Simulated assay, not measured.
Amino acid sequence: MYLRSGASLVSNPTDCTTVQLAEPATSNAYFEKGLEECEWLGRTPIVAVAVDGLTFYLAGVPTHDSIQVRSFRQNYHTPERPVRDKNGETIDDGEGKKKMIPGINMDNGYYQMHEYQAPAWAQHLNHIPSHIVKLTSLNTPIHRWSLPGVPDGFQVFIKRDDLTGAELSGSKVRILQFLFAEALRNNARHVVTGGCLQSNHCRAVALTCRQLGLTPHIVVARVSKV
């Protein structure tokens, strides 16, 4: 493997830095167990975890006995707790109250229909949806992005929809929450969509359909049968 020298491309490989690539991974019992338990083969392993009658699909988890699964089960219901300093003392919020870390409640209205209230800036729009299906937490942060070559006087910010806290492919759930609400209000039983072989949209639609009791039908480009 050859790397660029400085900022310009080089034509002579002898002027490049040579990097030794890692040896190809070899199969083992743990790897094969992960393939057997994986719910969705693709770019990331996904396993299904059942808790309190609900099924959660955890992305990036190789097997059911992984530490991620154990941690998920342990923290499924985490009560509110005070913030403490390095000495273990509780921290005051400046108004005589303890600072608290919000608890975790994984089934707090998820995959349920809710009335939708459009924000003030969108009130003038036509055809505002009346309902929404809560699929994940969408109050994601906006971070400044330090990129090389940005002209003076400009700043680049990125909306971190990879931090929704769910496996449903970031920003794609923003439109799906309205589409699935409409489908449920119209008593739909099947959902048809399409995409490429590794489409995150198709994956999100399929997972949401199963959670809502709908049957997904995925049309995959250039694939005759899956």
Rank of each mutant, 00 (worst) to 15 (best):
L147N: 01
N87I: 01
P102T: 04
P119F: 00
K134V: 07
D152K: 13
M113R: 09
Y111D: 07
G88A: 00
T140L: 05
H114W: 08
M106V: 08
T90D: 05
D92Q: 03
L135V: 08
A122K: 00
Y116V: 04
H114E: 11
R144D: 10
D107E: 15
Y110M: 13
P129Q: 04
Q117E: 15
M113L: 15
N139M: 11
Y110H: 05
D93Q: 00
G94W: 01
K97L: 12
Y116K: 03
K97F: 14
H127Y: 09
N87W: 10
G103T: 04
P129D: 03
G103H: 03
R144Q: 15
G103S: 08
Q117Y: 00
Y111P: 00
G96F: 00
I128R: 05
E95C: 10
I128C: 02
Q112S: 14
I142R: 10
K134M: 10
E115T: 14
L138Q: 15
P102I: 02
T140W: 04
I91M: 07
D93V: 04
K134F: 03
N139H: 14
N87D: 14
S146N: 14
P141M: 07
G103P: 07
P102Q: 06
I142L: 15
P148M: 11
G88H: 01
H124S: 14
N87F: 11
E89M: 12
Q117V: 14
P102C: 05
I101N: 05
G103C: 05
H131I: 06
P129S: 02
N105L: 12
P141Y: 02
H143A: 13
E89P: 11
S130G: 10
P148E: 12
S137G: 09
T136P: 01
A118S: 07
P102F: 06
Q123H: 07
T90C: 11
K98T: 15
H114M: 01
H131L: 01
V150H: 08
Y111M: 12
I101H: 04
L138D: 15
G88L: 04
N105G: 11
K99W: 03
V150A: 08
Y116M: 04
Y110E: 00
G109S: 03
H124Q: 14
S137V: 00
G88V: 02
I91G: 06
L138V: 15
L135G: 03
S130Q: 13
A118E: 06
K97S: 13
H143P: 03
L125G: 02
A120D: 15
L138P: 13
I142K: 08
A120L: 12
P141G: 09
Y110G: 01
I91T: 02
G103R: 08
D152Q: 12
L125A: 04
H114S: 08
D93S: 01
N105S: 13
N87C: 06
I101T: 08
D92H: 05
H114L: 09
Q123I: 05
A120W: 08
Q112C: 11
G96I: 02
